[in-house]
């Protein structure tokens, strides 16, 4: 690890010009292998205003420092947004989740092997030097939303569930102003600057994530496909929250993980399902619409059929056409 100056933030204003550290579960790993070499590290874990989960009317405000474990186990989340609990619990290990924070999870870096390997070129590490994944190998690379400069996928399970749930990210600007940014606008596509992953600027601090009011009665599923049963990143994942009246789907909120540089959404698919009778034929059509585009790299072409099957299975689960194990129904307080 390269030497750095360590300081502890006393207020949100202390973060400008420094690399923020909170849980450190991803950052310290990257610092050890010198993929990230910050000169100044500012520790925000003592900022009490970033802790705690609180109700905001029907909505839920999750402080940026709330750990993944605390968030997944929170009684309000388990009842009102069980999709989020499941998704968080699908990621990492308990040891990691006990340290990893809500804000840090959103900002975790890709696990593209070329990003981790400092002997290879990577535009995310050193903008402009090239992308070793182009022409290289990589079954974990992204399927959609890439550019010629970067093929890396965002690995977060939590962010994928939050995207389906239409969460907002609360950010305190260096000016002291607070803004709320819909998660769908929070991440940038790679374009020609894959090193810039979000709309955050220097001095900005994520202070919270806001969940909209729970959708009473919705059936929620986080279906994750990976190389081993636990403690592995997703190859593809589907986050689904489905509302029905009888056999008719009245609303489907969907997001897809590990297939793009950020949680992926496809409005055409969600609209195809709305107002329709749940059926395998419908789900197959939705899956075809989701995966029309070819993969940008031959090694991820397998993700297209895998994503189709995962979406169909998730929709069968959520609508009761298939095995419903691991499906949760949103409950709201009486």
């Amino acid at each position: 690890m390269r030497p750095f100056d360590y300081s502890r933030a006393d207020s949100a204003k202390d973060v400008a010009g420094a690399q923020i550290i909170a849980g450190g579960t991803n950052l310290l790993d990257l610092m050890k292998i010198q993929v990230m070499t910050p000169e100044k590290l500012v520790d925000i874990t003592r900022l009490s205003e970033l802790t705690g989960i609180s109700a905001e009317g029907d909505r839920l405000r999750i402080g940026a420092l709330v750990t993944n474990s605390a968030l997944a186990a929170d009684a309000r989340v388990r009842a009102g947004w069980p999709l989020l609990s499941r998704a968080i619990l699908a990621g990492a290990s308990v040891q990691i989740r006990n340290k990893a924070t809500t804000g840090g999870n959103l900002l975790q870096r890709t696990r593209c092997p070329y990003f981790y390997d400092t002997s290879q070129v990577c535009n995310k590490r050193n903008p402009g030097e090239g992308c070793a994944a182009q022409g290289g190998t990589g079954r974990m690379l992204a399927l959609y939303g890439t550019s010629e400069h970067c093929l890396a996928a965002h690995p977060s399970d939590m962010a994928t569930a939050m995207a389906a749930l239409q969460a907002e990210v609360e950010v305190m600007r260096a000016s002291g102003d607070t803004v709320r940014i819909p998660l769908r606008d929070f991440y940038r596509g790679p374009g020609d600057r894959p090193d810039i992953e979000t709309v955050l600027e220097d001095g900005d601090l994520i202070t919270a994530v806001i969940l909209p009011a729970p959708r009473a009665g919705a059936r929620q599923v986080y279906r994750k496909v990976r190389d081993r049963a636990s403690y592995a990143f997703a190859l593809v994942s589907v986050a689904a929250s489905v509302e029905m009246e009888g056999d008719t789907i009245t609303r489907a909120q969907l997001a897809y993980g590990s297939i793009a540089p950020h949680p992926w959404k496809n409005h055409e698919v969600a609209e195809m399902l709305q107002g329709q009778t749940a059926s395998d034929a419908l789900f197959h059509r939705a899956a075809e619409a989701l995966t029309r585009e070819e993969a940008p790299h031959p090694d991820t072409e397998y993700k297209r059929p895998l994503l189709r099957r995962t979406l169909i299975a998730a929709l069968r689960q959520a609508t009761g056409l298939g095995d419903t194990a691991g499906t949760d129904t949103v409950r709201t307080p009486a």
């Binding site: 360590y6 550290i21 450190g24 579960t25 790993d29 520790d43 874990t45 040891q95 990691i96 340290k99």
Partner: peptide, 10 residues
Amino acid sequence: VNSCLCLTAM
């Protein structure tokens, strides 16, 4: 927790 991923300073 994994103590390898904790900075003593924190």
